Lab assay of single mutants.
Amino acid sequence: DTFTFTLDGIEVRLHGASEELIKTIEELLKRDIRWEELEKWIREWEK
């Protein structure tokens, strides 16, 4: 599955994202998160 969203005018596609990761990103997007914050968060998630 591919999860697609737009952040700061950039279309982002995550391939093979888990349901948990998708739900977490959706929550972060509701908080009007900035790209830099999401990028940092995703790097931490990957560890």
Rank of each mutant, 00 (worst) to 15 (best):
T6W: 14
R13G: 05
K47E: 15
L14A: 01
F5K: 00
K30H: 10
L29W: 02
S18I: 04
D8C: 04
E36T: 14
E11H: 06
T24E: 15
E27S: 09
V12E: 01
I22M: 06
I10E: 08
L28K: 07
F5G: 01
S18F: 03
K40P: 12
R43M: 13
E37Q: 11
T6D: 06
F3H: 03
L28E: 02
V12S: 01
A17M: 09
T6C: 11
D8H: 06
V12Q: 02
W35A: 04
G16H: 11
I42K: 01
I10S: 03
L28T: 02
E19H: 11
L28H: 05
H15N: 13
V12H: 14
E39Q: 10
E36P: 14
T2R: 05
L38M: 13
K30P: 02
E44V: 03
E39C: 08
E44S: 03
G16C: 11
S18M: 03
E44A: 05
E46W: 09
T6K: 06
E37V: 09
E11Y: 07
E46K: 03
D32W: 04
I25P: 00
T24Y: 09
L29C: 04
A17W: 09
F5R: 00
R34K: 12
H15I: 15
G9V: 04
E39P: 05
E27K: 08
L28V: 06
E11F: 05
T2N: 08
L29P: 00
E27R: 08
I10M: 09
D32Q: 10
E20G: 09
L28N: 02
E20F: 09
E46S: 04
K30Q: 11
T4D: 08
T4H: 11
K40D: 07
W45Y: 13
V12R: 04
K23G: 09
K30A: 12
T24Q: 15
K23R: 14
R31Q: 12
E36H: 14
W35L: 11
L28F: 12
E37H: 07
E19V: 15
G9R: 01
G9M: 04
E20I: 12
D1C: 13
V12F: 13
T2M: 09
E27T: 12
T4L: 08
E20C: 06
I42V: 07
V12I: 12
I10G: 02
W41I: 15
G16R: 05
E37M: 08
K23F: 10
E20W: 09
S18T: 15
T6Q: 10
L29S: 03
E46T: 06
E46Y: 15
E46P: 06
L21K: 03
I33E: 03
R13L: 08
L28I: 06
T4N: 07
T6G: 02
E20Y: 11
F3C: 03
R43Q: 14
W45F: 09
L14S: 00
L28Q: 05
E46I: 13
S18Q: 06
L29A: 02
I10T: 07
W41G: 02
S18R: 04
R43D: 10
E39G: 05
W41E: 07
L21D: 14
G16A: 08
E44D: 13
E19F: 13
L7V: 15
E26C: 04
F3E: 01
L14T: 01
F3A: 02
W45C: 09
R13T: 15
